[in-house]
Design a protein around this nucleic acid. Structure first.
Length: 281
DNA sequence: TCGGCTTGATCATCTAGTTA
DNA sequence: TAACTAGATGATCAAGCCGA
């Protein structure tokens, strides 16, 4: 995996109160996770390599990445598993071992929950839709025409000329785009998205857009670094009593992915492609 | 700013049974 | 036969609080 220069103070996350050397320590941990995905990455080991106590490392990691070390490791494993399922002929059991799980049952259930489909279904759908254009997939699903009359929260999506015309916006339970989002919509870049009917809880707004040339295969795993742009918000949306209590709008600016960004675990383009009315699988 | 403690929550593993 | 699901159990993590 190629290394990129350290990019401190990641746009979108709350890093203004974290020193550069702490952010650099977290970034090194993230690189270690990604490059040695089959190894054990306990909180104790990660903190030790960052020269911090496990308690403080956990706190800093969460501030910098909007996720926790354990969840980040699991996301990296799933990202690698998706790549192996898409690009190798190894069976699911072998891939389970290669990404650091020792139990096929654990791997299958985790993969299904986080990615949105079982490993075997993922591989089958990839063989069908890998060459499809992400832009076409998003265009077939959206954009959402207009905000509903009554909305709980709205998002303003912004991007530059690198972005495709459409983006997927979701409200996720963690800072990683994984598991089923509480709400999800396809929206025009430089547009507004509105959500309603959200259950009480705290959500992380995240957006993903794909370059015009990107295919579904490009969107999978780490290979997507050059094919997709992401937007994250430093502020979470809290819904209580059926309405937003801390903020009723959030900005999301799409930008290139960086090494410290969470992996795209949920197989969004594939799920959307498989859900199209004329989809073959 | 950092480290440590506590406790409830979450995760990984194992195992057995089911499905494709 | 490989892949998937579900339940029980132990290990680890997450998050709040406090003190140096």
């Amino acid at each position: 995996m190629k290394s990129e220069p350290l990019s401190l103070h990641t746009e979108g996350y709350s890093t203004e109160h974290v020193s550069d050397d702490r952010i650099a320590a977290v970034l090194r941990s993230v690189r270690s996770m990604r490059e040695n995905i089959g190894d054990e990455h306990s909180l104790r080991n990660l903190a030790q390599s960052a020269l911090l106590s496990p308690y403080h490392f956990h706190r800093v990691f969460r501030q910098v990445t909007a996720s926790t070390p354990a969840r980040f490791v699991a996301a990296c494993r799933m990202e690698e598993a998706k790549l192996l399922l898409a690009n190798s002929s190894d069976n699911v059991t072998d891939i389970c071992m290669q990404v650091g799980y020792s139990s096929l049952g654990t791997f299958t259930s985790q993969f299904s929950r986080l990615v949105g489909m079982s490993p075997r279904r993922f591989r089958r759908l990839m063989s069908t839709f890998s060459a499809d254009s992400c832009a076409d997939v998003l265009a077939a699903c959206g954009p959402t025409v207009s905000p509903p009359e009554r909305t709980q929260v709205t998002g303003v999506i912004d991007g530059d000329s690198d972005c495709g015309p459409l983006a997927v916006v979701g409200l996720f339970p963690s800072g990683i785009p994984q598991e089923s989002p509480a709400a999800c919509a396809v929206v025009r870049v430089s547009g507004v998205v509105a959500f309603d009917g959200l259950p009480d809880g705290t959500y992380y707004p995240l957006a993903v857009s794909f370059r015009s040339s990107a295919t579904v295969a490009d969107s999978i795993g780490d290979a997507s670094v050059d094919h997709c742009l992401i937007g994250v918000s430093s502020a979470r949306v809290r819904i209580s009593g059926g309405r937003a209590v801390n903020r009723d709008s959030f900005p999301l600016r799409l930008r290139r992915r960086r090494p410290i960004d969470p992996p795209l675990v949920l197989a969004l383009p594939l799920l959307l492609a498989a859900g199209r009315p004329n989809a073959a699988a």
